[in-house]
């Protein structure tokens, strides 16, 4: 094989490769446009002065920031003052969701870590039984027993309350131990053994040795439990019923699209949706490696 031949082969190969790459660039660009279209459209609508739901133009004919302002206060020209945006107190809902998300993230993370540590590192007689029960309970459709949960909360005097919501979310977290159990399984047992020889109790091992090693899984658990209340519509809408002051943003935003309201509130819905989507998106983009680690770590373990 002479040099020229090899060079020709190389350049032919390079050309083919270049052509393939160009095709991939084209495909990727088209896909990105398709994928971003609805989101950019949503942002455009949120800045739109008209209230059109199905405009012919992609960009608003009239730009405004009012939709965002109206989420928190509406100008009452008669009273000459800012008033609460009555049927949809978005600010209140935002606060509700934030409180619920933070509280349930803290409690749920603790519960999940406790349970998965017990299942992963401790050996006791009823361990298998509990694992099986956990598996079985997880297979019932989540909202099959919503009505009964509501009745129980009524007994405790916690129906339609944010505290009740936090409790239900945290209680359900007890079944979400698989991923973090998988993570704990990967921490070498020799660490425990060594500590035990040094006279540490299991309690100390948990706090001093295992938890500091579990940063990724703690972040992953906290992240997922923090995010879920922002997106939960089904249970909250059933649980809060007519108590609009205690709605979360998901229920509130959904209600803005009811036939009675959509005509007047659609662009406001868009603004509200953008407002919660931005921080969550940023959070997720930053934390994505923890997310991947969590899911695949669990997946590898099976």
């Amino acid at each position: 094989m002479t040099n020229t031949q090899s060079a020709a082969m190389k350049s032919g190969y390079a050309a083919r490769r270049k052509a393939a790459n160009i095709i991939i660039y084209v495909i990727l660009s088209i896909m990105v446009i398709i994928w971003l279209f609805p989101i950019v459209w949503l942002v455009m609508r949120s800045f739109s002065g008209d209230n059109l739901i199905a405009p012919k133009n992609f960009f608003p004919t009239e730009w405004t920031f009012d939709n965002y302002i109206n989420l928190f206060a509406v100008w009452d020209s008669e009273a000459n003052a800012w008033v609460d945006p009555d049927p949809f107190p978005y600010g209140k809902w935002l606060l509700n969701t934030f409180i619920v998300a933070v509280c349930s993230a803290v409690i749920s993370t603790l519960i999940i870590l406790m349970i998965s540590y017990a299942f992963s590192r401790l050996r006791f007689k009823t361990r298998k039984t509990f694992l099986n029960f956990g598996l079985i309970l997880g297979m019932f459709p989540g909202f099959m027993s919503m009505a009964a949960t509501y009745n129980i909360m009524e007994i405790f005097g916690l129906k339609q309350s944010l505290v009740g919501l936090v409790i239900v979310y945290s209680a359900g977290a007890g079944l979400g131990y698989q991923v973090s159990k998988g993570f704990f399984d990967t921490i070498p047992r020799s660490l425990d053994e060594a500590a035990k020889i040094d006279g540490a109790t299991r309690n100390q091992i948990f706090w001093v040795i295992i938890l500091p090693l579990s940063k990724p899984i703690i972040v992953y658990t906290a992240l997922t439990t923090f995010l879920s209340p922002w997106a939960d519509y089904i249970f909250v809408s059933y649980f809060m019923k007519d108590n609009q002051e205690n709605y979360t943003v998901a229920v509130g935003l959904y209600n803005m699209l009811e036939p009675n309201y959509i005509a007047n509130y659609f662009t406001r819905f868009c603004a509200g949706a953008v407002l919660i989507a931005v921080p969550i998106t940023i959070l997720f983009v930053i934390m994505q490696r923890f997310y991947v680690a969590g899911v695949t770590g669990g997946a590898v373990k099976g």
């Binding site: 209230n51 059109l52 739901i53 199905a54 009811e258 036939p259 009675n260 959509i262 005509a263 659609f266």
Partner: peptide, 17 residues
């Protein structure tokens, strides 16, 4: 048919446009 937006929204928008 009003589509998924419902009668009121559809009528409002229809007359407006």
């Amino acid at each position: 048919s009003p589509g998924t937006v419902g009668d009121n929204a559809f009528v409002q928008q229809g007359f407006k446009e």
